[in-house]
């Protein structure tokens, strides 16, 4: 396994009086795409939000690049090099496509070469450059959300269900984009409900159930073992797309 970039050890998270994560242990190796799978309500999105500091871990330790970020504030975690793409197309609808991307550029300007690369991944963004993001289609909004996360080089991308609610043709575009990101050496932790997409992209996989990691291994092993898939993921994972 490559060097571990992100490590979660025994992480517990409470949201109000609800105990959501019950000791999550997770490793994300540098330069790999790790899939985080599980049934609805298993705690996948909460895990990503806890890593970002949007929910505070009540117990356990999160380290990123060797540094403890368990108690760090969200802006500090972002500044440390973690980009987060929330589920449901987390864009700023009133701002233009250009303004959405500039917001993510820490120096306030976008590197032209990087922008060309992003346009290569998501050509629609160049077409709608000056339009308010709110008028884009669902797929385009998702592309914008991912583009915003990669408009500057980051150490780690956390992406929450990027294919949710998208048409099959758009999902294939999204898969191609993630393949390019993998080829560019990005480290990605991807939450996904679409098992077909997960199989095509994942290097490693971690499966969650009831706020815990119940399986960790390689994606190739899981893809070949239908019994393991059925036992760990049940019928809730979408395998038909």
């Amino acid at each position: 396994m490559s060097e571990v970039l992100l490590r979660l050890e025994g992480v517990h998270t409470h949201i109000g009086r609800y105990h959501i994560l019950h000791g999550v242990d997770l490793l994300v190796p540098r330069g790999e795409l790790t899939m985080l799978l599980g049934r609805n309500g298993a705690g996948k999105s909460t895990t990503l939000r806890t890593i970002m500091g949007l929910w505070k871990a009540s117990e356990g330790r999160i380290s990123f690049g060797g540094q403890d970020i368990t108690a760090a504030a969200t802006p500090d975690i972002a500044q440390a090099g973690i980009a987060y793409v929330p589920e449901n197309m987390g864009i700023f609808a009133d701002l233009t496509v250009r303004e959405n991307l500039i917001l993510a550029a820490r120096r306030g300007e976008i590197d032209p070469a990087r922008l060309r690369w992003v346009f290569g991944l998501f050509p629609a963004l160049e077409t709608f450059w000056s339009l308010a993001a709110g008028v884009l289609s669902g797929g385009q909004k998702q592309m914008l959300a991912i583009a915003r996360a990669i408009i500057e080089p980051r150490e780690l991308l956390l992406v929450d269900e990027p294919t949710k609610g998208l048409a099959p043709a758009i999902i294939m575009n999204m898969i191609s984009a993630f393949r390019e990101l993998k080829a560019a050496g990005e480290t990605i932790l991807l939450v996904e409900q679409n098992f077909t997409a997960a199989k095509m992209l994942g290097d490693g996989v971690a499966i969650m159930d009831d706020g815990r990691i119940v399986h960790a291994g390689t994606m190739a092993e899981l893809a070949e073992d239908a019994g393991l898939q059925q036992r760990l993921l049940g019928p809730s994972m979408d395998t038909h797309q």
Binding site: T74, P75, Y84, P86, G90, L103
Partner: peptide, 23 residues
């Protein structure tokens, strides 16, 4: 200005703005 854009982003969703690194 860039400052005004951040304000508008905060108005829309302060969690997302924080996740981009803005206090």
């Amino acid at each position: 200005s860039p400052f005004g854009r951040v304000l508008q982003a905060i108005r829309e969703n302060d969690f997302r703005a924080e996740a981009l690194g803005y206090r």
